[in-house]
C-alpha cells in the first residue's frame, strides 16, 4: 500500500521540479542546437535561453512566466495499491497543483472557457487532467507531471491512405511553418506526431509523443524510427530557427507514436513541446522509497502491444 501522504508530498515536489528544472535530455539537445546555429538572431535567442535555465535553477523560480497547464500522468504496476483508493490519489494531485500555484509561484492559467472564472490555483472542471497507464509487473506508481504551454503548435487532420507519406510530410511542414512564424510555437521544440487511432486518441498519442518521450529516444519499430530521423532533419531544413528568425534549429527531436485506426483513414496530429519542455517524474514504492527522474518511460513494450494477450517472452523473442 502506498501511503497517501507520500503521494501528496512527492506530487508537490514534482510540481516545483517541473516548473524550475529543465530536463537534461532537452537541455543537451538545445546546447547542441546552440553549437550549430549560425543565424545571428537565432543564436542570440538560444544563448539567452541557456542563460535563462541557469537563472531559473539559481533563483529557484519558474523558467517561463507562462507556466503552462499542469497535468498528470499516473502509471501503476499491476499490483500497486493506493491508501484511500484512486479518488484519494486524484485529490492529492489536485491539492499539489493548487499548492504549487501559490508556492512556486505558477501563473494561475486555468480559467472557465466561457466565464473566464479563475480560481487562482490551476484547478477547475477537468483541470488538471489526470491520465492513467498500467504495467503488468510491479507494486509501484509513477507520478508524472507535465507543464505544457497551450496555445500554438498543435493541429489535427484526417488524412487517408491515399495521402501516403507525402501527405504526412505536407501536414507536418504546414504545422511547423504556420506555427513557427514569429516563433509562436516557442521552438526549437520536441515535435510529437500521432498517427492513427481515432481523432481523440490520435491527439493523445501525438501529445504523449512530444511530452512523454525524451530527446534521442526512438520508436521501437525501426521503420518509424527512421521516419523520426528523417522528419527531424526535414523540420530543420526549413531555414527557420528560434522565434521564427532565419536559422537551422526548429526541431530538437521528432517523436512518432502510432495506434491502429479505421481501415479507411490515417489520422494525424502534430504537437510542439516548447523551449520550456517541463516534465518531472517520480516512482513511489510501498516501503516509502521515492526515485526522481525526468524520463517518463511511458512507451514500454506493454503500451505498444499488438496482441490480445500479453506475453513478455513472446515479445522478447520477436
Amino acid at each position: 500500500m502506498i501511503p497517501i501522504d507520500l503521494i501528496r508530498k512527492t506530487a508537490r515536489s514534482l510540481m516545483d521540479k517541473a516548473a524550475i528544472e529543465i530536463p537534461e535530455d532537452y537541455l543537451e539537445g538545445l546546447q547542441e542546437a546552440a553549437r550549430t546555429e549560425d543565424g545571428d538572431l537565432s543564436s542570440f535567442v538560444l544563448q539567452a535561453m541557456l542563460e535563462n535555465y541557469e537563472a531559473t535553477k539559481e533563483d529557484r523560480r519558474a523558467m517561463c512566466g507562462d507556466t503552462g497547464v499542469p497535468r498528470w500522468f499516473v502509471k501503476m504496476g499491476n499490483a500497486a495499491q493506493v491508501e484511500g483508493g484512486m479518488c484519494a490519489l486524484e485529490t492529492a494531485l489536485r491539492r499539489a497543483t493548487a499548492e504549487a500555484t501559490n508556492g512556486v509561484p505558477l501563473r494561475p492559467n486555468r480559467v472557465h472557457p466561457l466565464w473566464r472564472t479563475d480560481h487562482n490555483n490551476n484547478v477547475g472542471i477537468g483541470a488538471p487532467e489526470i491520465e492513467y497507464g498500467f504495467e503488468p509487473e510491479g507494486d509501484w506508481i509513477d507520478l508524472i507531471t507535465v507543464h505544457k504551454g497551450g496555445l500554438f503548435g498543435t493541429d489535427y487532420r484526417m488524412l487517408f491512405p491515399s495521402d501516403g507519406i507525402q501527405g504526412i510530410k505536407r501536414f507536418y511542414l504546414d504545422s511547423l511553418v504556420a506555427f513557427g512564424k514569429r516563433g509562436l510555437a516557442c521552438q526549437p521544440a520536441i515535435i510529437g506526431i500521432g498517427l492513427g487511432g481515432s481523432k481523440d486518441t490520435c491527439m493523445a498519442l501525438g501529445k504523449r509523443a512530444s511530452v512523454l518521450r525524451t530527446v534521442g529516444s526512438r520508436n521501437s519499430d525501426p521503420k518509424i524510427a527512421a521516419l523520426e530521423d528523417e522528419f527531424k532533419e526535414l523540420g530543420n531544413s526549413i531555414g527557420m530557427g528560434a522565434m521564427g528568425f532565419v536559422g537551422k534549429n526548429m526541431v530538437i527531436d521528432c517523436n512518432i507514436e502510432v495506434g491502429y485506426c479505421h481501415t479507411g483513414g490515417m489520422q494525424m496530429s502534430v504537437h510542439a513541446f516548447c523551449l520550456s519542455s517541463r516534465r518531472a517524474v517520480a516512482r513511489l514504492y510501498p516501503d516509502g522509497r521515492v526515485e526522481y527522474r525526468t524520463d517518463p518511460d511511458w512507451f514500454t513494450p506493454y503500451q505498444r502491444r499488438e496482441t490480445v494477450d500479453w506475453s513478455p517472452a513472446l515479445e522478447a523473442a520477436e
Binding site: F160, D163, Q166, G167, L173, K181
Partner: peptide
C-alpha cells in the same frame, strides 16, 4: 525574416502533396 525564409520553402516542400480532403 519571414520573407527570407519563404525563398527556401518551395524547395523544402518538394516531394510532399496536399491532402486529398
Amino acid at each position: 525574416e519571414n520573407e527570407r525564409i519563404s525563398r527556401n520553402l518551395e524547395h523544402v516542400y518538394e516531394g510532399t502533396r496536399p491532402a486529398v480532403l
